[in-house]
Design a protein around this nucleic acid. Structure first.
Length: 750
DNA sequence: GACCTGCTGCGGCGTG
């Protein structure tokens, strides 16, 4: 090919602005032209400043950032000072390995070193990178934290000449403890290197709110962040939402047939349809929970066997070993044999599994943003649309189903998720959090990095320049006091007024488990001979001789070693499903509002199958029969059901408000059941709430159990834990609005 | 009614 692919093309100017070795590398890739997102991002990033690059999966975001950044580095010349030039942070080790593979050729062409740095990289390789820091470093937040904490004096030499920081999968960090830690680390680096600011480039496929993402990238100065949104729309979308009637009774037990009887968690008709749709192709199937992953993988594998076919269904979730998961990922990506990975959220993020034909999902799922991530896994090959099928179980259309069950809120939620996605809606991150657990961690980390500090300096670094900007000076003083209390002794004040690490803090930060800000449960390793299958939660472990389904296969437990926390297994014929923990998902207000719109509307989406359409029509009839179009209060026997059409956090807050007034309340997923009381009493309580809440936020928080949810919560005083509850788990100011919505659901906005 | 993510330094041993 001697033609000039970039002649008279809109991307020509962008291409021409890149450094010569970068252009040369692009030529060798034989790209027809730069992608839209690259053409847009190149001038913005060359200009300097903070930038967010948002585009669908596989649209070339990585190159959109690195082509101009490398151009910037090369412009500095050969005699540039030592230190890394570009710092790239990703949430997964697997992603760092992928990106290393992807960037190797480009960096080599440009004569710049490329280092990967995470827990699986040899200390030798890290040592080499540390002694001659230069070029690009790909690292996890935890490894970065370890470097700051253990080698505080080297920070300036390693990072003071950074041209930019790249944060991949930005959405995986925003609004979470790990995101707070990353922001804090970046601020700590800027301050340690006496740099006013180092350019930050955020990459993401799905962002609910660009404004909030910008404010995450640069706390307090989000308005200065440039946004680049790729317009590459993909190849279209074929989607279907399928309804299934609940299985009425478990299959009859006829003694001998029991060993092959499928666990009842599997819906037989769904399993049959999944087998018909997925067999013979390469697909992803999101089952919703680890237990369902195991159950459906087992059922589908059995169907392959019954049909005399080699198995093509494989389990993939967070309790399976790295080896088990990598086998599935490799088979998806590189093996021509048809493969369906049955997964939890493990295959949502950017690990490279190539293109898949169909994405299937059991149940409505928990968020629109996750639905978008999943869809992005399909339809990447030119000319093929993304294919998505959702399978939802609901009560059938037979007589005798109670009107409230006829609302079929799981199916309605699933359709609402799809509708929200089609409208371009997406949950914004929760920006209300105080994240005091992580602030405890960052206070210790900062002390380890820089030795002793004045409290005012710690406050300026972490809460004024850093991300903990909702924490007042007074609250931080309370937090320091709690950390220094005789009970915890994490820190102490020296005679000259400096904060120092105390014995408790030394002990807490001594091991490698200190670097991560999230907690991990203690598990037993499951071994088949020398082969590590994965890990099971401790509460499941019972007895030798027991059988389990794990990694989609059936095993008998041979020995359990409690000291070593190891379970040895052998293959067997029949087995039961393991149980995993889990405490429910939160649904956002915007999804529940779509549900209300759907139930009160008349439009029937074209993507419903016959059963789903009939179920939606019946749900709408029930909605009107119950009078829910007029008010969200209905009498059911001696109880009153309340439908405020609000997300999990606000519904939970309303439930606490009723509890505070001595009602007996049971919380459903989308409604409250006020037990044994007259509708007039509930009516009066709600009307009173509209005018003025009876209780302060502090009084309501006192009623809520305060489990230690985050890793360092145990070091917070009760007073601080209550503040966390008020900020993160309740929405007290919304009570008048929510109460009003129970009377005129459609008329209220806010 | 749920899911996911991460890891240093050092002592002790064997080998070339």
């Amino acid at each position: 090919m001697t033609s000039q692919p970039f002649a008279s093309n809109p991307s020509t100017t962008a291409f021409d602005s890149l450094a010569e070795p970068v252009r040369k590398w692009i030529w060798t890739q034989k790209w027809a032209q730069l992608r839209d997102v690259q053409t847009q991002a190149i001038p913005k990033i060359l200009e300097g400043g903070d930038v967010i690059v948002s585009a669908r999966t596989a649209a070339g975001k990585t190159e959109a950032a690195f082509l101009p950044l490398i151009t910037r580095v090369l412009a500095r010349g050969d005699d540039r000072p030592t230190g890394f030039d570009i710092l790239y942070v990703a949430p997964l080790k697997a992603l760092i390995n992928d990106q290393h593979r992807r960037l190797e050729g480009l960096l080599e062409e440009c004569g710049l070193p490329l280092h990967k740095w995470h827990g699986d990289v040899s200390s030798d390789a890290k040592q080499r990178a540390r002694t001659r820091p230069s070029g690009v470093i790909l690292i996890t937040p935890e490894s970065l934290e370890a470097t700051l904490v253990r080698r505080g004096r080297e920070v300036e030499g390693l990072f003071s000449n950074l041209s930019a920081v790249v944060i991949d999968e930005l959405h995986a960090f925003v609004g979470r403890e790990r995101g707070m830690q990353l922001q804090s680390i970046l601020t700590r680096i800027e301050i340690a290197c006496r740099r006013d600011r180092i350019d930050r480039i955020g990459l993401s496929a799905t962002l609910g709110d660009m404004g909030m993402a910008a404010d995450f990238l640069r706390p307090g100065r989000g308005q200065n962040v440039s946004l680049v949104e790729g317009s590459d729309a993909g190849n279209g979308l074929k989607l279907q939402v399928r309804g299934y009637a609940k299985q009425l009774a478990p299959p009859p037990e006829d003694g001998e047939a029991a060993p092959s009887a499928r666990p009842s968690i599997v819906h037989d008709a769904i399993a049959d349809d999944l087998f018909a749709y997925l067999r013979g192709h390469t697909n992803l199937m999101f089952a919703g929970s680890r237990q369902k992953v195991e159950a459906y993988t087992d059922a589908l594998r059995e169907k392959c066997e019954a049909n005399g076919l080699p198995n093509e269904f494989f389990a993939h979730h967070g309790n399976l070993s790295k080896g088990e998961r990598e086998d599935v990922e490799l088979r998806l990506r590189d093996d021509p044999r048809p493969t369906t990975a049955v997964a939890t959220t493990t295959l949502e993020l950017g690990i490279d599994v190539g293109d898949v034909e169909t994405v299937a999902q059991i149940g409505p799922g928990f968020s629109v943003s996750s639905l978008r991530q999943r869809l992005g896994r399909s339809g990447r090959r030119a000319g093929t649309p993304a294919v998505f099928r959702m399978f939802v179980v609901e009560p059938g259309l037979h007589a005798g189903v109670h009107p409230t069950e006829r609302l079929r809120l799981d199916l309605v939620q699933g359709i609402a998720m799809v509708e929200a996605m089609l409208k371009g809606l997406c949950e914004p991150p929760d920006s209300a959090g105080l994240h005091l657990s992580t602030l405890v961690h960052q206070t210790l980390a900062l002390l380890l990095q820089s030795g002793s500090l004045r409290p005012g300096v710690a406050y300026r670094v972490l809460c004024e320049a850093g991300p903990f900007q909702t924490v007042s000076r007074d609250m931080y003083a309370l937090l320091l006091r709690s950390m220094a209390s005789s009970e915890h002794q994490l820190i102490e004040m020296s005679s000259d007024g400096n904060l120092m690490l105390a014995a408790g803090g030394e002990a807490l930060s001594a091991g490698h488990e200190f670097y991560a800000v999230f907690e991990t449960p203690v598990d037993y390793r499951v071994l088949h001979g020398a082969h590590n299958l994965g890990a099971l939660p401790m509460d499941h472990v019972v007895a030798e001789g027991q059988t389990i389904i794990f990694a989609g296969r059936r095993w008998r437990v041979m020995t359990v070693d409690d000291k070593a926390r190891v379970i040895l297994v052998q293959p067997t014929k029949a087995a039961l499903l393991p149980t995993f923990g889990g405490n429910g998902g939160a649904i956002h207000d915007l999804v529940v509002e779509q549900m209300r719109l759907l139930l009160s509307g008349t439009n029937v989406p074209v993507y419903l199958n016959g059963t789903a359409r009939l179920m939606l029509e019946d749900a709408r009839a029930a909605f009107l029969e119950l009078g829910l179009d007029r008010r969200g209060l209905i009498q059911v026997g001696r109880d009153v059901y309340v439908y405020p059409w609000a997300g999990s956090k606000r519904l939970g807050t309303l439930s606490v408000a009723f509890l505070a007034q001595k009602f007996v309340v049971a919380a459903g997923h989308h409604h409250l059941e006020i037990e044994n009381c007259a509708p007039e009493a509930v009516d009066a309580a709600l009307r009173a709430l509209i005018v003025a809440p009876f209780h302060t936020a502090e009084e309501l928080a006192a009623l809520v159990a305060k489990p230690e949810m985050a890793k360092f919560d145990s070091f917070l005083s009760l007073e601080l834990l209550n503040q966390v509850t008020i900020a993160e788990r309740l929405d007290v100011p919304s009570l008048p609005y929510i109460a009003q919505r129970c009377f005129t659901p459609a008329a209220v906005t806010g």
